[in-house]
Design a protein around this nucleic acid. Structure first.
Lengths: 239, 239
DNA sequence: CGCTGTGTTGAGGAAGATCAAGCGCCGTGG
DNA sequence: CCACGGCGCTTGATCTTCCTCAACACAGCG
């Protein structure tokens, strides 16, 4: 299902992801690769976009993790989604390039200008797939928050992250590097970090996940996904 | 803020909304009005779209309420969003017209084919605004589910509905007709109908809302919005 | 060396779920 | 015409999940 095009070396997650979303031709691959060469990096906690403010232009995440966030007047914070290498930001086809949410870097993040879609129809296709996936993940997040218990929320989110990181080549064998703190996980899942901690311990005790030294392993992703009634997004989006 | 164009009679909420999103010219107004004349109606519980299945084409809600839903294998149900007169469905600019979620009619619903965007640049503009608003409401819903208490969720959702129904002319003076049952409200807000019931009573006791005979009145929407740190979506989207 | 951020643990409390029952309303069918 | 059943709303009792507050261990880092 996940195909690696000739021009998508494993070493470059952003290119790997786009090539997996659509079979990029040479023009597209070169455009993306050269764009990546001109990436700029930001520190953790830096804001890649601010809600209500104009966006410079569409950008591509080259490395690092970021999150779209909303902060309530009393300080409560909610992560709307995570942004991983290969994800696009500010791709509104709208005339008004206004950010609908604030985006904050969770780790050191490198981004580059996203090559315009008219470089190649395949690149445009990849962008379209990316946008469709993004919406699908937003909807999945609503279900998580609305109808899942703490343990389910955690498992479901980790499965999503595994899926996405597998797509861009940053995960394999159910294992990936996890830069998120338990507090960040809580802010994404509508829970407190204390509760996240306890539920993670339970999951570890039950042998579902192994988590040490910033490395997460989902012991049996298929079984876990089955238990949650989860299907891979790409299948449903591309079917 | 909400302007009524010459061609948007109060009697037609769908047209009213589109005209409020962008100043429609005669071509656009006529196209929409004639499309509305060919609306088809469906019964409650009928499905306007099914997740993973192809969509016939973009459609415009003419009257009635619908909801995007996800149902988990064990029967848990989550409403992703509500669809009101003037809302569009199936407007994916994607090559693949696949529904990302199931849409079910909550009341008798009339829909018509959405006039193509190239009828008029103003109509295209209205569609773009509509899409931007839809995303903004999705994000707001995530915050509701993730970080708000039951009472806040209810108040916030009612404020959103008031805002949207005011935009299409179906509400005035903080008052509108409410076809949703308490169970539907629960399915949208990630709560049980029992708890919705109790929280509604509390809100009534405190004088925040009046709800009888399918009519909802938010006694002081501005104060309520202030208390929740809520701003009108259109302002932030169009600023 | 103290500081800050992250993970961990405990005790107690509050929000919301679950289970169960009853009520009023309305459409349907005898 | 009335009995019936279904649906939506309401209420009570009880239980679970998750939060809050607090403290402490540990590591990296200036």
């Amino acid at each position: 299902m996940i195909r690696l095009a000739t021009y998508a070396p494993r070493e470059q997650p952003a290119l790997t992801r786009l090539a997996a979303l659509a079979p990029l031709d040479a023009e597209a691959s070169v455009a993306v690769a050269t764009a990546i060469d001109h990436a700029a990096t930001m520190r953790p906690r830096a804001e890649l976009a601010v809600e209500g403010r104009r966006i410079a232009g569409p950008r591509l995440i080259v490395s690092g993790w970021a999150a779209r966030t909303k902060i309530m007047p009393d300080g409560r914070r909610q992560f709307l989604s995570f942004l991983l290498p290969g994800d696009l930001i500010g791709m509104c086809r709208q005339p008004r390039p206004i950010a609908t949410s604030t985006i904050v870097a969770l780790t050191p993040v490198a981004t580059c200008a996203a090559p315009p879609a008219d470089v190649s129809p395949w690149l445009a296709e990849a962008y379209a797939m990316s946008a469709a996936l993004e919406e699908a993940y937003l909807l999945a997040h609503i279900v998580r928050l609305g109808r899942m218990h703490a343990q389910e929320r955690i498992a479901d989110l980790l499965l999503e992250l595994l899926e996405r990181l597998t797509l861009n080549g940053m995960a394999s064998g159910g294992q990936f590097e996890m830069p998120l703190t338990q507090e960040m996980l809580g802010d994404a899942l509508g829970l407190t970090s204390v509760h996240i901690n306890r539920m993670l311990q339970a999951a570890r005790r039950e042998g579902d996940i192994v988590w040490r030294e910033r490395q997460v392993e989902l012991v049996d992703p298929e079984k876990l996904a089955e238990r949650m009634g989860r299907r891979p997004m790409l299948v449903s989006a591309a079917a």
